[in-house]
C-alpha cells in the first residue's frame, strides 16, 4: 500500500480550513502507518468530536467517530475485545483534556495499548474559537475576550504522570520528527501520547496577532525548544521564557500495558 491508499478518497476534499495544520498531522500519521506496513483490516481509527476528530473519517480502514471526549473509552473497549487491532485515536485539546479529561488520565493510567494523537490548536475550532484548557495565558478567544485568565494544561506532563508508556510533543512545522514520533509511538506497547501543536489560523491566529499561517508556523519553529536543550538549560539554571515550549520525546518506558494479546 502507498500513502494514498490510506485515504478514503471518496470523502475528500476534507473540511479543514485553508491553512489548518490538521491535514499535515493526518498525513504524518498515515505516513507512519504506511512505513510500518500495517494492514488495513488490522488498523482502526477512533475519534471524538471537534476538528481533530474529523480526521478518522478520512482514513480508509475501519473508523469510529464517537462522542465528545469519549473516544479513549470507546477505544479501550474495542482494543480489549480485539487486541490484534492497531488502534489510533485522534483527539484535540478540548476533546482530550476538558470533556474527556477523566478518560484521558485513566487511559494513560491503564496504559492501554493504543496511540493517541492530540491535535492541540489551543482553541475550540469547530464551534468557532472558544477558549480551551490549552488556551495560553492571556490569549484571546471568543469566550476569553479580555485574555485567558487560567493556566493551560501541559498535556504531556499529564500523560507522563498518569502512566503513559510513550509521550512526545512536536508541531505541525516538524513534519519529519512528528512522523518519526508517531512511528515510535505505534511500536511502543502501552499508551503512546503524541501532542502536536497545530495552527488554527481561522479562530486562534486571527485573534492573536498571527493572521497569516506562516506567522504561526514561524512561531512554532522559533518557540519550540528541543528537549535536550531544555534539559541542558535547566541544568545550568536557565529559566525558559514563557513563550517557549519544549518538543521531543519525554518518556519511553516499558511499564506493563493493557490490551496486548497474551503471548501464546
Amino acid at each position: 500500500m502507498n500513502l494514498e491508499d490510506w485515504y478514503r478518497q471518496d470523502r475528500l476534499p476534507h473540511i479543514y480550513c485553508a491553512g489548518c495544520g490538521n491535514g499535515t498531522i493526518l498525513n504524518c500519521t498515515l505516513r507512519a502507518v504506511e512505513e510500518l506496513d500495517y494492514k488495513k483490516e488490522e488498523t482502526t481509527f477512533i475519534s471524538g468530536i471537534g476538528c481533530s476528530s474529523r480526521a478518522a473519517g478520512y482514513t480508509s480502514s475501519d473508523s469510529l467517530h464517537t462522542t465528545h471526549g469519549r473516544a479513549l473509552a470507546f477505544a479501550t473497549g474495542l482494543k480489549l475485545v480485539k487486541p490484534r487491532q492497531h488502534v489510533i485515536v485522534f483527539t484535540g485539546d478540548g476533546d482530550c483534556s476538558a470533556i474527556g479529561g477523566n478518560h484521558f488520565i485513566h487511559a494513560c493510567r491503564r496504559n492501554i495499548d493504543i496511540t493517541v494523537i492530540c491535535m492541540n490548536n489551543n482553541i475550540y475550532g469547530m464551534t468557532g474559537g472558544q477558549g480551551s484548557p490549552c488556551t495560553p495565558y492571556g490569549a484571546i478567544s471568543t469566550t476569553t475576550p479580555y485574555g485567558m485568565q487560567e493556566q493551560p494544561f501541559d498535556l504531556c506532563k499529564v500523560a507522563e504522570a498518569a502512566g503513559a508508556n510513550y509521550v512526545a510533543r512536536w508541531t505541525s512545522f516538524h513534519v519529519k520528527e512528528l512522523t518519526e514520533a508517531i512511528r515510535v509511538g505505534l511500536e511502543t506497547p502501552g499508551l503512546s501520547f503524541i501532542e502536536v501543536m497545530t495552527q488554527c489560523p481561522t479562530s486562534f491566529g486571527s485573534k492573536n496577532k498571527m493572521r497569516q499561517v506562516t506567522q504561526m508556523l514561524d512561531m512554532f519553529r522559533d518557540n519550540a525548544v528541543l528537549k535536550a536543550k531544555a534539559d541542558r538549560d535547566a541544568a545550568k539554571g536557565i529559566l525558559p521564557s514563557p513563550e517557549k515550549f519544549v518538543v521531543g520525546q519525554f518518556v519511553r518506558r516499558n511499564n506493563p500495558p493493557l490490551g496486548v494479546e497474551a503471548a501464546k
Binding site: I46, D62, L64, T66, T67, R70, A73, F74, A75, T76, G77, L78, K79, L80, V81, K82, Q85, N102, H103, H106
Partner: peptide, 17 residues
C-alpha cells in the same frame, strides 16, 4: 471503567470489535 460514560462507550467499542 472510570465512570458510566466510559462504561457505555467501552461496550459500544467492544461491540464494534
Amino acid at each position: 471503567m472510570e465512570d458510566e460514560l466510559a462504561s457505555a462507550a467501552a461496550i459500544i467499542g467492544g461491540s464494534w470489535a
